[in-house]
Write a protein that binds this DNA or RNA. Structure first.
Length: 256
DNA sequence: ATGGTTGCTTAGCAA
């Protein structure tokens, strides 16, 4: 079972790239983030023609998440559903082939002195509560998403430059770790303990050709899926060419 | 170093 996560930065602007990637990469499950459209504008037809069902939690202009799968996703849950008033569409969950799949778009946080940063830290706490109230760490579960946090120094191209910047502050790393403490393992780091690979490069300043990136897109696995993990990588090729997303897909293979 | 680029929506915001 191949599962992937990809922040597409507008599913409409990236429709052809999405279809091309589905056909070439052939994932069984794909978590999408930053759809930037309402459900009615999601390209269900093109995705269906490529061989995928889609569970979609869209939003106008901002955010929006989805789970694509070769089999119809079951027991779809949209949002954190914790009673907090929140218009952001940042989480969708569904079951595919016995695996609980979550697609998460963690808030960016803008700058450390902003309300958005406070919202980001709180969102992590709410996600941990979501896991605690609905799930057990011995369930087969994968959390794919744009986590907007680089876990360690190896995950940023210049740790001294990034230290204290949004995506790499101590508080964000701690907040991510608190979610992971539920019982989750970073699939990429598990298989590649010392390798430096990035998943996001700023559109500006020639960041991609200079490989000035950060690793903020992750697949987190519960223990039953870590046992099945055989491969995990970033598809850097998908960041190349005309009008790419600023993120590359991250994928993992699980033994069936 | 406070720039630079992209998408949505149409001047400004979020990333």
């Amino acid at each position: 079972m191949k599962i992937a996560t990809w922040n597409v930065n507008s599913v409409r602007a990236r429709q052809q790239r999405l279809v091309d990637w589905l056909k070439s990469a052939q994932p069984d499950v794909l978590c999408l983030q930053e759809l930037k459209c309402v459900d009615a504008d999601f390209p269900f037809e093109a995705v269906r023609e490529a061989g995928y069902f889609a569970a979609v939690h869209g939003q106008k202009t901002y955010n929006g998440v989805a789970i694509l799968a070769r089999e119809e996703p079951q027991d779809v849950v949209k949002g954190l559903s914790d009673g907090v008033e929140d218009s952001h569409a940042r989480l969708i969950a569904a079951t595919v082939r016995g695996v609980r799949v979550l697609s998460a778009y963690v808030p960016n946080g803008q700058s450390v002195d902003s309300d958005a940063y406070v919202y980001k830290l709180e969102w992590f706490r709410r996600l941990r509560r979501y896991l605690d109230t609905r799930h057990k760490p011995d369930e087969a579960m994968v959390l794919g998403g744009d986590w907007n946090v680089a876990p360690e120094a190896i995950d940023v191209h210049d740790p001294a430059l990034w230290e204290g910047q949004t995506l790499f502050t101590r508080r964000e790393r701690d907040a991510l770790q608190q979610v992971g403490a539920f019982g989750l393992t970073d699939a990429f780091r598990k298989l590649h303990p010392t390798e430096q690979k990035f998943s996001w490069w700023d559109y500006r300043m020639l960041a991609f050709p200079k490989n000035k990136g950060v690793r903020i897109d992750h697949l987190f696995l519960t223990a039953p899926l870590v046992e099945r993990l055989t491969a995990c990588d970033v598809d850097r090729e998908a960041r190349k060419g005309q009008q790419p997303s600023d993120h590359a897909p991250v994928w993992a293979d699980l033994r069936d």
